Amino acid sequence: MQTTHHGTIVIQPHAGQFVIDELPTLVLCCTVWVYGGMEGLPLTVLAVPVAVLFSLILLYRYIYLRRIRYRIGAEQLISEHGIIRRKVDYMELYRIVDFQEYQSLLQQLCGLKTVHILSMDRNTPQLDLIGIRHKDNIVAIIRERVETNKQKKGIYEITNH
């Protein structure tokens, strides 16, 4: 988590999230590489091209994950992702209505979490901030900025209980 001189917080998924997301493919890729290096076994000639293909897929997914950026500004939460074709989603903070944090077992072991944000935004009704360090209290920061923006715009929530 890094803060710019304008007070914008920039977050990037932790590299450990790649291992969590791609663990089965990583194991399979390593297994195929080892099998391809053995002599005298059937289909070892096919194993190397398959291993290269898996490796290229994993490389692409790693670069994709590392190029994700979440920017929490004074009025917007901006999500940027993509390699060849970049996509930028803008979510007005005053439209955010709820948060959830969750951790898979592997995320717990790695000290990471996913923050799920629900909003009234038509283009981005929900956004998952993946691979966030568990110790980073992102929800509190976003919540504070959401409340500030709602007060600035005179937006109040009416509930029936």
Rank of each mutant, 00 (worst) to 15 (best):
M91Y: 02
Y102F: 12
I78S: 00
R69P: 07
R66N: 15
A74T: 11
E75M: 10
I78V: 13
V97K: 11
Q76F: 10
Q103T: 09
R66W: 08
R67M: 12
S79R: 03
L65F: 02
Q108Y: 07
R61H: 12
S104Q: 07
Y64V: 00
F99V: 11
V88N: 08
R69Y: 11
I83F: 01
E101Q: 15
Q76T: 12
R66Y: 09
K87N: 14
R85T: 12
R95T: 08
H81S: 10
R69C: 08
I68A: 03
S79N: 07
I68D: 02
R95A: 06
E101C: 15
E80H: 09
E92H: 11
E101K: 15
E75R: 14
I72N: 00
I84K: 06
I68S: 03
I63A: 06
D98Q: 09
I68N: 03
L77R: 00
L77V: 07
R69K: 15
R71I: 07
R85F: 13
L77C: 07
I84L: 13
I96D: 00
R67Y: 08
D89C: 12
I84N: 05
R69G: 09
D89E: 15
D89S: 15
R66E: 11
L77S: 02
E80C: 08
L65A: 02
L105I: 15
C110M: 14
D89I: 11
Q103L: 07
L65C: 05
S79P: 00
G82R: 03
Y70R: 05
Q108F: 08
R69M: 09
Q107C: 08
G82I: 05
R95F: 04
R71H: 10
L106A: 14
Y90M: 14
Y62S: 04
I72Y: 00
L77A: 03
I96K: 00
Y94H: 13
V88Q: 14
R71F: 09
I84C: 03
E75T: 13
L77G: 01
Y102N: 13
I72A: 03
Y70M: 04
R86Q: 12
Q108E: 12
L77W: 01
R71G: 06
Q76N: 14
L93A: 06
Q103N: 09
Y64Q: 04
L106S: 10
L65R: 02
V97I: 13
Q100C: 12
Q107M: 13
R67W: 06
G73L: 04
Q76S: 10
I96T: 02
S79G: 04
Y64R: 02
E101H: 12
Y60K: 01
E75V: 11
C110I: 04
R86N: 10
Q100R: 15
Y90R: 14
D98A: 15
I78F: 01
Y90G: 07
I78G: 00
K87V: 15
D98Y: 07
V88W: 04
I96E: 00
Y62W: 11
D89G: 09
Y70H: 06
Q76E: 14
L105Q: 11
D89Q: 14
R66H: 11
L105F: 15
F99W: 08
V97Y: 04
D89K: 13
Q108N: 14
S104L: 05
I78H: 01
